[in-house]
Write a protein that binds this DNA or RNA. Structure first.
Lengths: 217, 217, 217, 217
DNA sequence: CATGAATGAGGATTCATTCAT
DNA sequence: GATGAATGAATCCTCATTCAT
């Protein structure tokens, strides 16, 4: 009986995950407005009535899809600790590590990137709010790293950590955004196609800017 | 006769501008998908058939709205010259001037910011391409400034100007994005409302990061 | 399971047939341009969204309606054989039989006649092509009958069977056309209403003309 | 003053004729439903408001266009006299003459044929009535010719002239119809394109059928 | 639980017609 | 007289959502 119940629950959980996955693909590919419930159903090979047994409505599914992506990205920075580094070199290495991981994630799963940087915005005030909160949270996490460096004396004492946290994130994520946008942008109508800086070069440039600034010595 | 003709043309031009303006407001407020032609018509107080005398369809209007906003932002950086500065202090002042102008623009017209950072993305591949091109162009302009400093010796000789150009833009625009996102985010569901760094503080933080980096001395 | 599936299929087939039938009525009564999807929906007593589950669009439905009518008329001449007759009297009887059947069909179902002779033309190039092909096919069938008579010697040896086939059909169908046109023509604006030759008289006249010509002896 | 008035009238008459002519072309090419007032205006190079100074509405213009075509076709049979012939040979020649003229007319002006055989039908009950009256009138005229031959003894005494009149017309006009329909029907999708009997062959076949019937001797 | 038939609100778009200039 | 800007009725079609099977 317990087995049955569990297997029933598992089945439901699994089905829910499948739907989420299909929705993830479809929403990333077509965007919220263009995607239809029928698209998702077709992708998964189930009747579209089945959805409404697992999700309230289209917005609900989309919310969960975005949550899932946010969770994945958040997880990527979770194993590092803001207070683990004690000198500039260590922090530099840590920043590279995190950036590498994040951009690697977005590079490996373009759909996640597209959802995060393009499709998730402007769908509903509530979701915009959630995205904004995530953004802020990321800013605060980065700020915590900076605060640690400031405390330990290897970062500038007058650093505005809150502002800088957001700014640093903006730079790193810009790399991800470029990846997504470059995707569809290379149509036949763009003869002057300038290849994007590859991931390594991006990280090099950003960390150089971040740690040393642009001024000559 | 010439007068009549001209006045007729002016009238048409004016009407077109009015429609563009109404569409601008509506699209910024509701986004492309949520906005309806009827909304725009109502906003302007004309019959909705009138639209189709001036624009092909909803996508066409949206394209023009975005073009207009792009043009406005582009204009904001047009009067500065990439080669006008000869020392770090001058360039720093120039960067502040440009950032001030840009963020001032976006702050004064939240709708422009919302369109640019949120609504314009993901509507159509063609538009995404155009937005991406604008983004790249901006990167190249900033890169030209950096190149100038590199040539004249007041910026680091090993600066990757292309990468850094995009990264600097990302930071500055992040300020604009935060403004927009903060807008709708202050709903009843966000009790812990932390006020954003105001514009001045943002510019201070970003320029400090940009010029000096984060490391202590 | 097979039963369930079949019953589901039957249901769908039945529904499709119902819609086809309603569309048939509406198109025949109002013509393609004047008929609306809502008309058809109302006639059947279903939501108009239901249509789009069974047919692509208005043209698609119309195509199928016309196909169905063509099929019915074609079926009416299918049981006779072009080579079954060996003398003039037999052929004369056969012609009468076919004409009787065809005109009986069109007389019994005025809508079929109206669709065939009036509404189906000029809707789309593709449909015009199809109608024209049907017309030609009918001509060829009639030509085959004439060819049989020519071979067997009971029809004129110098008969241009292709031309004559089309001409004979034109005469027979003219009877059908007259029936349809007479329908709506008896409005209050036609005081001098001359009753049409009834079906029998039409067949008599046409077979006399066809077999004996008009000249005196 | 009288001159002015006349010239004014002439001008108006001429303009009206121009509009009629443009409408004729457009309606023949696109059909009533597909044609728009703007199409006609564009074809003529005038403002579309101008129409409403000369015609009540779209139906009104169409009515006049059809009237004009009917008039032209009617004119083609007006110079012959039903009582002018006294023997079979003369009548045969007369029939050939009329058919030649009619089909020549329709062959030279495909638009007239298309309007007459395709586009004019099914637009409005009133117009259908008018077309039907024209058809009947033509039948009566042909019947008068037959009646003459019957009276004078060179046609069968038992001829049902009313029925036969309509049937003969149907055959002749079928030639015209074939011409129109062949027009658009020769798309790339019809590999088995059988060329139509040319006009001469058509007239030969129809007169042979009409005068001698199909039976062998 | 799963399904997919049915629904109709909603929205883009067209175009005949009017009327001020 | 001529024009064409403005209008909104009318219609096709989509698709999220419900619910009976």
């Amino acid at each position: 009986m317990a087995t049955l119940k569990r297997s029933g629950q598992d089945r439901a959980t699994r089905r829910r995950a499948q739907i989420l996955d299909a929705a993830y693909r479809v929403f990333a590919d077509k965007g919220f407005a263009e995607a239809t419930i029928a698209d998702i159903a077709r992708d998964l090979g189930v009747g579209h009535g089945t959805f409404y047994r697992y999700f309230q409505n289209k917005h609900d599914i989309f919310d969960h899809v975005v949550d899932e992506v946010i969770g994945r990205v958040t997880g990527a920075i979770a194993d590092e600790s803001p207070t683990a580094t004690d000198c500039l070199a260590d922090y530099r290495a840590q920043v590279r590590r995190i950036a590498e991981k994040l951009l690697g994630l977005l590079d490996a799963d373009r759909r996640a990137a597209k959802l995060l940087f393009v499709e998730a915005w402007g769908v509903s005030p509530a979701l915009d709010r959630k995205m904004q909160q995530m953004w802020r949270l990321f800013g605060q996490v980065t700020a915590a790293y900076l605060e640690n460096g400031k405390q330990k004396g290897f970062l500038r004492a007058d650093l505005d950590t809150e502002t800088t946290g957001l700014a640093v994130n903006a730079m790193i994520f810009e790399g991800g955004r470029q990846v997504v946008l470059a995707e569809g942008a290379s149509g036949p109508g763009s003869p002057e196609h300038v290849p994007l800086p590859p991931r390594q070069r991006w990280i090099d440039g950003v960390t150089a800017l971040m740690f040393d600034g642009i001024r000559g010595d």
